[in-house]
Simulated assay, not measured.
Amino acid sequence: MLYRKMPKNGDKLSILGFGAMRLPVREDRSIDEPRATKQLRYAIDRGVNYVDTAWPYHMGASEPFLGRALADGYREKVRLATKLPTWMVNSREDMDRFLNAQLERLDTDHIDYYMVHGLTGGSWDKMKGFGVTEFLGSAKADGRIINSGFSFHGRGVDFAGIVDDYDWDFCQIQYNFLDEKNQAGTEGLEYAASKGLGVIVMEPLRGGNLADPVPAEVQEIWDEAPVKRSPAEWALRWIWNRPEVTVVLSGMNEESHIEENLRIADEGEPQSLTVTELQLVGRVERKYREIMKAGCTGCRYCMPCPASVDIPGCLEIYNNLYMFRKEMESKMMYATRLAGIVSADDEPHFASQCIKCGKCVDACPQHLPIPDFLEEVVRDLEGADLRARVETAKRMFVRK
């Protein structure tokens, strides 16, 4: 296992982190605790020392599971990370209530890496209004949290402002070879590192989609490489190639995937890929773009929409549906992200709200027929069961 230092505190963290969002489950969707515990402890025994969870993962069951799984001395072997659920906070008092509950659920007296969860520009302003900076300072002073950070799911244009607005220790961003210009992107990665923040990367495989299934035309490009690697290895090595990255999280739930990721993490040195190898990954990225139904780059020039449609969000999930062919997963993601359940304004942003005013078409640098694409989003991702999916999502993100 390779390790990299957290810039501000010198912590030596394993470059592979264990994400507890996608643990193995039984038929009833509850966590398969014996199997998950064995997997987690095996990874820790092999050198993984960063474990990440959050309040809503596994319908609220992830944190309590980790409290049990990290018994028998395993808690002392890892740095534990979890997050303040911003969408459920309505006062300064809520912050202490959630943190204290998380300490109990995780059966620990401190959180090593505590994040303000899923920030956007709007939700950061909301949390500041509630006193989150005072909360973080107080919780660090009394030892309930050791390092303060934030996870980010907003617009790239808002990222630097959040970085600069508080003395953060670290941040967590979505990053992979398809997301260089999406959300924080490469620009955000480099900016955070330049400010001395450790950077934790989530979704390195886009929820596993960059590893399996791989479109045949993409696999043909991977097969051209002189050094044979799996798609998962290419994707992980591409991220670890960046020296700005501290830890890459993987939501591992198959023993074979854990074994593979551990092996790859023995070789994930920064700047270890050749120019030719990086060019190969670039060709794969462009091929994925060709497969996409809509050529949206996520630049957000089309926003804000007069009808409150989250146009880039709709098109991102629509593209994922056709790139990765996971219909139920895409539909559930659409319901969760676009219903306003975890957004700062608590308002829906569905494609079906489009009024065809045409402002987005005029603003789009790619000159995309956005209203036409939104009609296809409605056809493929909404449907009669949308309300049921929204209600399921709400149950996932409510206080337990």
Rank of each mutant, 00 (worst) to 15 (best):
K8C: 08
I111F: 02
D380M: 10
E255Y: 09
E203S: 08
I370S: 08
A160Q: 15
T276H: 04
I162C: 04
I15W: 09
S91E: 11
E316R: 15
E244T: 05
P270V: 08
Q172I: 03
E190N: 11
R286F: 04
K400D: 15
N176R: 10
W240F: 11
H367P: 01
W222S: 00
M21P: 01
M59D: 14
G10Q: 09
R237C: 02
G358F: 08
G131A: 13
T186A: 11
S30K: 11
L119M: 14
D362G: 01
K359A: 12
V378S: 09
F135P: 11
R229G: 05
G156A: 11
R242N: 14
A192W: 12
L84T: 07
I146F: 01
I221S: 08
K140E: 11
F18S: 04
P226V: 06
R237E: 13
E347N: 06
L106Q: 08
C305A: 07
A20E: 05
P231L: 09
M59N: 13
V227E: 15
P270E: 09
A43I: 04
K356Y: 09
G185M: 10
N241Q: 11
R286C: 00
Q271D: 15
V48Y: 07
V218T: 05
L210N: 10
A184E: 13
T133M: 09
N147M: 03
A141L: 08
S91W: 03
P371I: 02
G129M: 05
M202D: 02
D169A: 07
T186V: 13
R300G: 00
A393F: 08
L189I: 11
F150N: 13
G60M: 08
P64N: 09
L381K: 03
G60W: 10
G149D: 12
R41G: 05
L262H: 12
E382A: 09
N100V: 03
H117K: 06
I146P: 00
A335M: 04
D346P: 00
R97C: 03
W55P: 02
V132I: 15
D164T: 08
T246P: 01
L381M: 06
F65E: 07
K293P: 01
Q279N: 13
G208Q: 04
L13M: 15
R79L: 10
G149F: 04
R79T: 04
V163Q: 08
Q353G: 02
E190K: 14
Y74N: 06
E203F: 07
V163G: 04
L210M: 11
D266V: 00
K400E: 14
S151F: 05
F65T: 08
E255F: 08
W55S: 11
I239G: 06
N182E: 10
N319R: 07
G154H: 07
T276C: 01
T297M: 07
N182Y: 15
V199C: 04
P7K: 06
E104N: 11
P369N: 13
A307S: 15
A54E: 01
R387V: 04
Y334M: 07
E180D: 10
